[in-house]
Simulated scan of single mutants.
Amino acid sequence: MGSGAEADFARSCVSSITSSGHRASLLTSDGVRIEAAHTPREAPGGPPSGDLVVVLAHGFSGALERPALRRAAAAFTQRAGVVTFSFRGHGRSGGHSTVGDREVHDLAAAVRWARSLGYRRVATIGFSMGGSVVLRHAAIHGQGERGGRTGAHTDVVVAVSSPARWYYRGTASMRRLHWVITRPTGRLVSRLGLRTRIHPEDWDPVPLSPTEAVPLIAPTPLLLVHGDRDPYFPVDHPHMLMAAADPASSELWLERGFGHAENAAEPELLERIGEWITAHG
Rank of each mutant, 00 (worst) to 15 (best):
Glu271Met: 01
Gly274Val: 08
Glu266Arg: 15
Ser190Glu: 11
Trp179Val: 11
Arg71Asn: 10
Arg272Met: 11
His153Glu: 13
Arg88Asn: 05
Gly89Arg: 00
Ile181Phe: 09
His153Pro: 00
Trp276Ile: 11
Ser86Ala: 11
Phe76Leu: 12
Gly118Pro: 07
Asp228Cys: 10
Ser190Asp: 12
Ser97Phe: 00
Thr84Cys: 13
Ser161Trp: 04
Ala57Leu: 02
Asp155Tyr: 05
Ser61His: 12
Ala123Glu: 01
Ile198Met: 06
Glu251His: 13
Ser249Pro: 00
Phe87Ile: 09
Asp8Val: 11
Leu177Thr: 14
His239Asp: 11
Arg41Cys: 07
Leu117Ala: 04
Ala244Asn: 06
Ser128Leu: 03
Arg11His: 13
Leu135Ser: 09
Ala68Ser: 15
Ser20Asp: 15
Ala245Ser: 15
Leu117Cys: 05
Gly186His: 08
Ala57Pro: 00
Ala63Trp: 05
Ser86Arg: 05
Gly148His: 11
Ser161Ala: 14
Ala139Lys: 10
Trp113Pro: 02
Ser15Asp: 11
Cys13His: 02
Pro163Arg: 12
Val32Gly: 01
Tyr167Phe: 15
Val14His: 09
Ala72Glu: 14
Gly31Phe: 08
Val104Leu: 11
Pro48Met: 04
Phe76Asp: 00
Thr39Ile: 09
Pro247Gln: 08
Pro247Gly: 05
His96Gly: 03
Ile198Thr: 04
Ile198Ala: 04
Ala265Cys: 15
Glu35Asn: 10
Leu269Trp: 07
Gly89Asp: 06
Ile217Tyr: 09
Ser12Val: 01
Leu26Pro: 03
Ala279Cys: 04
Val156Glu: 01
Val54Lys: 00
Arg33Met: 10
Leu208Ile: 14
Asp106Pro: 07
Val104Asn: 04
Arg149Ser: 09
Gly259Met: 03
Ala243Val: 04
Arg183Asn: 14
Gly148Ala: 10
Ala7Val: 06
Ser19Leu: 14
Ser93His: 02
Val53His: 02
Phe258His: 14
Ala164Val: 03
Arg183Met: 12
Leu26Val: 08
Val235Ile: 13
Ser12Cys: 08
Leu194Lys: 10
